Computed example of a mutant assay.
Amino acid sequence: MDLATLETPVPVVDLDIVEANLKRMQAYCDAHGIALRPHIKTHKIPRLALHQVELGARGITCQKLGEAEVMAAAGLDDILISYPLLGAGKAERLAALSRRVRMRVSVDNPVAVATAAEAARQGAEIGLLVEFDSGNGRTGVTSIDGVVELARRIRETPGLRYDGLMNYPVSPRTGEILRELLPRLKAEGLEPAIISGGGTPNAFRTHEMAPVTELRVGTYIYNDRMQVAAGHAGWEDCAFALHVTVISRPEPHRAIIDAGSKTFAADIMPAGPQEGHGYFPDYPGARLEKMSEEHGMVDLSGCDRKPEIGQRLRVIPNHVCPVSNLHDRIAVTRGGAFQEFWDVAARGRSQ
């Protein structure tokens, strides 16, 4: 089967670029004495996760239990769930995982600690990382005293192991907080064995910003338009593209492609919706200005030459992680030639 004959829309991943991206990040971590724990939420494919470990990653990061269950079934071990888990159902599933593989979970509140403790009672010892907020306004303890108190609680809870700290995204503020927090923890006998930081955009500056011992990054495997805008990658480092077809040219300045919101995620660029929902490498002046479910409306007014009906186009998504999650499988290439389809085994695993 030839790549040009694949029915569109289809996500296509260049494995040569993937390999270069993986090796580049592993080399950075090795050079700075940081353990790499890649986040599989971007690709959700066990064989890619296994390859990341083969290249030197310590283990993997998952955001949800469903992802971890898929990865564990494929033979992955040493899994961190970087997300608070709450309730009896989550405790039961976490317990089942802990009996099979080494598990860590991040927490930022006593209820999440209690859920992990219940899982440990049913399964095996579970390591916990206390997540602290450095200004992202998402999950994470927001005070130094709160971090110390939660770490104490973990240490005193049977079946749990206090392993250290977690933060996202790593920033200069992370370093400021740690300079105040680490002496407090050391005085309590709670010096962290792990300081886990995350975020692809500034990944190669991690060692400058904070004393992180472990790096959680996901998007780096594929890269996307946001990573290019952030300066982390160039267009040549983007491994994932959606191949689409022009199905209509109602007006000279407008094309309709066979892909809409069920193919692309709705993420917009930092500058706003005027930048559109993807980048066309062969038509950089084109703008995917709006979408319905199965239609993409492309403004061609910025293009000197314009694609015709029936022409296939490549589109690099703004944010690849949710786009990857929309598709059951990807087409993979090596040397520019189609190889096979790979199932996105953990797609839709949001519980």
Rank of each mutant, 00 (worst) to 15 (best):
M1W: 09
A4C: 10
T5K: 15
T5C: 06
L6H: 04
E7W: 00
T8Y: 09
T8R: 12
V10L: 08
V12Y: 07
D14F: 00
D16Q: 03
V18Q: 05
R24N: 08
A35I: 01
L36G: 01
L36F: 02
R37M: 13
R37I: 04
H39I: 11
I40K: 03
T42P: 07
T42G: 03
H43V: 01
I45P: 00
H51F: 00
Q52A: 14
G59W: 05
K64M: 12
L65K: 10
A68P: 07
A72G: 01
L80E: 04
P84K: 11
P84N: 10
E92R: 15
E92S: 14
R93Q: 09
A95Y: 04
A96N: 10
A96K: 15
L97K: 02
V101G: 10
R102W: 03
S106L: 07
N109K: 07
T115K: 03
E118L: 15
A120W: 06
G123D: 03
V141A: 10
G146W: 13
V147T: 11
V148G: 00
L150P: 10
A151Q: 10
A151D: 08
R152V: 12
R153E: 14
E156R: 14
Y162I: 04
D163L: 15
G164E: 09
Y168S: 14
S171W: 08
E180V: 02
R184S: 04
L185T: 00
K186P: 01
P192S: 10
I194C: 07
S196I: 02
R205G: 05
R216C: 15
G218M: 04
Y220C: 11
Y222T: 13
Q227S: 14
Q227W: 00
G231F: 04
D237T: 07
C238L: 12
A239G: 12
A239C: 10
L242I: 14
H243I: 10
H253C: 02
H253F: 12
I256Q: 08
S261D: 05
F264D: 01
I268D: 02
I268C: 08
M269F: 01
E275Y: 14
Y283R: 01
G285M: 06
E289A: 13
E289R: 15
H295E: 12
V298K: 11
V298W: 00
D299I: 06
I309F: 09
G310L: 11
L313Q: 02
C321L: 07
C321W: 01
P322N: 03
S324Q: 12
S324K: 04
N325C: 02
L326D: 04
D328F: 10
I330Y: 05
A337Q: 15
A346T: 08
R347A: 11
